[in-house]
Design a binder for these strands. Sequence first.
DNA 1: TATAAAAATAAGTGATTACTCACTTTTTAT
DNA 2: ATAAAAAGTGAGTAATCACTTATTTTTATA
Lengths: 218, 218
Amino acid sequence: MKDSLEQWLEELLEKHEGERMTDKQSRILRAAVEVFAEKGYSGAATSEIAQRAGVAEGTIFRHYRTKKDLLYSIVAPFVAKLIEPFVLRDLYPLIDNPHPTFEGFIRALLDNRIAFAEKNIKVIKILLQEVPFHPELREQFLSKVAERVLVKLSNAVYHYRKQGQIVDLPPLTMIRLVGSTLFGYLIVRFLFAPSGWDDTQEREATVQYILHGLNRKN
Amino acid sequence: MKDSLEQWLEELLEKHEGERMTDKQSRILRAAVEVFAEKGYSGAATSEIAQRAGVAEGTIFRHYRTKKDLLYSIVAPFVAKLIEPFVLRDLYPLIDNPHPTFEGFIRALLDNRIAFAEKNIKVIKILLQEVPFHPELREQFLSKVAERVLVKLSNAVYHYRKQGQIVDLPPLTMIRLVGSTLFGYLIVRFLFAPSGWDDTQEREATVQYILHGLNRKN
DNA sequence: TATAAAAATAAGTGATTACTCACTTTTTAT
DNA sequence: ATAAAAAGTGAGTAATCACTTATTTTTATA
């Protein structure tokens, strides 16, 4: 957990147009992720973030004009990362260089998103919590994710539908169904984390459920 | 929307051991639901709740010792309502007097929960938002919902599995899969509310997805 | 109508909030 | 080595927070 957070943080550093972050700045970010995830944006006090980062409160406002800026600087690059696998065709040939079978596609998608969720639980929690209260966040999320990802996914799904591999439903409907199933798997596994969770079995059941649910033989 | 909120409020009044609520008290509750849903618990100021209820701020604290009490008085009876259809056998013969077919069961469950969600969107939003930050809420929710509802559902699912109507998976796994699909339908319909949403078509696709997904003919 | 109880109020309370600013320390460039 | 720039500090700001209390208004009962 700590490793993946650190890794994410470092990736965030590099994003900042070559400008390296200072040690204190990265500690502020780390503490902010922690406190935002624990108490939510409104419940998180900048004083506590400063304290946990081992930094004077004024230092926060030297780097981030407002508390909201701090939130955005955490969430915004994450949203970008969220879309990445759907737009970087050479890194992830998931969409544009598709698997021959729908099953292979689903399995790859599942693996890909599970790995991503594993690395970003805390930021995902923050995003889910705060999107309802920040119209700008919601707008950015919807415009980027909805417009870009949904279009890419629609194309892929349409491709398998045309081949007769899956049932004849609107692509958006199928994306909702598969997305729900995938999302439910992730929520139950990472947020509820039930005892006695047999992951290989659950994952296989999930894949089979999707495949049969969208099988063209009605 | 306003009708259902009023109806829910009246049901809440009757719950209070015969003690009728004053007019101002119910207006406080109504305003609190509104503001909590809009800004979240931490972001909601008691001053704004009072203002929107057309009431002095002190009046809130005459009826509710703390702000947290106000939140609980809204959410607690809702959690009870959430479980009701699974424990009141005579009102909802959904579980204990089951449908002969799994398909009938799923359709009834879907209709039942959609109607419930339709009537309680705002309180559902509050519950989803605040459960992560209030251990007592989470504990009550998990102990009541998880223990009572999951047991009932497991029995029902086990019944259909024994009859060979559905695939041979652990009941909890199947509940997760069906629950995810149902939840995804509700979220997309009520929270995203996409334009051009053909509800009968979406609902039928959802039912078919579940039925084929759990069909025993693998 | 008289009176006691309950409900409601308005003006506070100290604590905490996000944020500022004058100042010191550290880093960088020449 | 030195000066300019950047980073960091912590005391202080007004505003807002949840909550209290003394007082007034409303309601119920006789």
